[in-house]
Design a protein around this nucleic acid. Structure first.
Lengths: 167, 167
DNA sequence: CAGATAGTTTGAGTATGTAAAGTATCGGAG
DNA sequence: CTCCGATACTTTACATACTCAAACTATCTG
């Protein structure tokens, strides 16, 4: 009596249902995230970049390009932009004079902190929940934990050269 | 002994913790969402637009511009693009010849269905959870439910004219 | 007819991306 | 030590996706 029915199908359905709810919430709160960026005058790209950088230890251009999965020249462009705004500094690497190390400037550190603070501030949709619901949500979300690094606020845009989707 | 400590602070902390987990998950799964778009050759904008349109009933340009919170000329541009790709059609409104009604083309309907299917498919991160965890997550997410409408996959980019964030 | 309305066109700017060529530097072979 | 190919980064040229503002066209309504 107790079984014979495999669990697999249930799991997929559960995942789909959970995802559906999460996805809708992601969409619903997108404005909140964008506002934080807009208030700081940052683009999604800037945000991602700040997340990869620190004040103390520098990262090489090539490391950044790899992390951002973009061309080296694009990384140059991104860092140029941040540098012009005074958020980052380029430094010569002591060991290899070809290498450029990028670090946050004092202002960049401050901006990154503001970004982190703003982004991790719960959106109003969440505050509308009951305390008990919030606790349940927090616990349910915990096992999803992944890389604790970085503060990127939006991923690189979905790009792909022209493709007919409409047949 | 039992109290004096108000509940409010707890709630805010709970919300922050829950949000932190959700936010990290949103970032972690961004690739999944972008891939769906890339496979269909759609931009985030396209996706949002398809979500607002149907095959049967048309929507006016102005209604779309309002929903997308963009300029009327921008709406024209967006619809132009979709029309060139054969995903939507413009129709004359019967009552007012100034008005244009936009509907999905048959191909657009198909693409929208593919988009919906792809986007509501749970990302691998979720499938890694235990069945019990998934059930808890689904239930915890349920009270967040908002507007059941639309399939937008990514919100308009955070834009704002130059602002110094670094002082 | 005189506005008001719905949409489009035009012009301009930002953000983002690739590709290819150029520059400086390094590390090893002779 | 010198020359040579690899490396790290930048520059230049170009393309796409968005976006707004202002001017323009067609149409409606009083």
């Amino acid at each position: 009596m107790l079984s014979g029915v495999p669990r697999r199908p249930d799991k997929r359905i559960l995942a789909a249902e959970a995802w559906r709810g999460l996805f809708d919430f992601i969409i619903a709160t997108a404005d909140h995230r964008n506002q934080v960026l807009a208030q700081l005058g940052l683009t999604p790209n800037d945000s991602r970049a700040l997340g990869s950088l620190e004040r103390a230890s520098g990262r090489t251009m090539s490391a950044l390009a790899k992390e951002w999965r973009c061309d080296a020249s694009t990384a140059t462009w991104i860092v140029d932009r941040l540098e012009k705004r005074g958020l980052v500094e380029r430094r010569a690497a002591p060991t290899d004079r070809r290498v450029t190390l990028v670090v946050l400037s004092p202002g960049g550190l401050k901006t990154k902190a503001q970004l982190t603070r703003g982004i991790y501030k719960a959106p109003p949709e969440l505050l509308a929940l009951e305390t008990g619901e919030l606790a349940a949500l927090r616990d349910a979300v915990a096992p999803l934990a992944t890389r604790p690094e970085s503060v990127p606020a939006a991923p690189p845009q979905a790009r792909e050269r022209r493709r007919r989707a409409a047949d």
